[in-house]
């Protein structure tokens, strides 16, 4: 605070610490985990194929491509075209480009991920009570000034992300209906793919609805909640999820990648889907 001045020299250099535990392990795991996911998601988005599995009457759509705005006529596309008319012809198109931006922005501005990638990617700080690069020193801006002050946009990113979760539940529901062998209508069924997609929507729901911004907007902004039973119940639920936000964040990240890989491998014929009933 301005009336409490205190000036001290920076004592620790980058990576300097008296910690004797494996402090570098956690940032390293975060670095590798997020990088691996980023590389896989980008690769999968550029494929623009093998995202919809319909052999044996199944109806599995990869979450990276959902909602499928543009696609081939036999695919569950939302708009009656294979590609947007305004898309420049020289640029490769994948429906996933339009999709990944939403959940991508959610993760990028998420309070949990922010803390984690500031450490793992920018060494700010690399780990608790471990020294930082000297050059940053007092020039540090944190999230107080541009550019990182823009992280406050997170609350707006929440709403589209919540809509994606609903769409993914719809996809999981669609994956419960298989085209009859004679091609006449659909019948209820559950395959391994159905469970993969249902779990995916559930895990992403657990992550998204445990968001700190959701917690704030559902009731956290109030000082008094007594006498508001519905709000209290919602706030309690969101807080319960929020307490485990880091866990949801990682499990849902891994599972959404796996869901895409599962549909992709089915399409490629690496293995076949097992229909439970």
């Amino acid at each position: 605070m301005s009336h409490a001045d205190l000036r001290l020299p920076q004592v620790q250099k980058l990576g300097q610490t008296s910690r004797t535990d494996v402090w570098w392990l956690q940032p390293l795991v975060v670095l590798l985990g997020l990088s691996a996911f980023g590389v896989y998601a980008t690769w999968a988005a550029f494929q623009a194929r093998d995202y919809f599995y319909h052999t044996g009457g199944a109806h599995y759509l990869s979450p990276f491509y959902s909602p499928l705005l543009y696609g081939a006529p036999h695919e569950p596309r939302w708009i009656d075209a294979t590609l947007p008319s305004w898309w420049p012809s020289w640029m490769p198109f994948s429906a996933a480009f339009l999709i990944l931006a939403g959940p991508g922005a959610m993760r990028f501005t998420c309070y949990y991920y922010r803390g984690a990638y500031y450490k793992a990617f920018w060494a700010d700080p690399i780990s608790c009570s471990v020294g930082e690069p000297k050059f940053r020193g007092e020039k540090y801006r944190g999230e107080y000034r541009l550019p990182l002050i823009l992280q406050n946009i997170h609350r707006y990113v929440f709403y589209p992300a919540a809509a994606f979760v609903i769409v993914l539940f719809y996809d999981a529901f669609r994956a419960m209906w298989f085209t009859r062998p004679d091609g006449n209508g659909t019948e209820f069924g559950v395959g391994v793919g159905t469970l993969v997609l249902l779990l995916n929507a559930t895990l992403l729901g657990g992550y998204t609805f445990g968001c700190h911004c959701a917690r704030h907007q559902i009731g956290g902004y109030l000082d008094r909640m007594a006498g508001r039973p519905i709000r209290t119940a919602c706030y309690t639920c969101v807080s319960w999820l929020n307490k485990r936000h880091m866990g949801w964040a990682w499990v849902s990240l891994v599972w959404v990648g796996w869901s895409d890989a599962y549909v992709r491998l089915l399409c490629k014929g690496v293995f076949t889907d097992f229909r439970i009933f």
């Binding site: 301005s2 922010r114 803390g115 500031y118 700010d124 700080p125 608790c128 944190g142 990182l148 700190h212």
Partner: peptide, 25 residues
């Protein structure tokens, strides 16, 4: 004056609190 924007939510404070206060969250 409090500069709360400088906090980049690394949660180191929460980890060391001997009273287990969930400071960051």
């Amino acid at each position: 004056a409090g500069g709360i924007g400088y906090c980049n939510i690394t949660k180191c404070c929460t980890k060391v609190c001997p009273e287990h206060i969930t400071i960051t969250d």
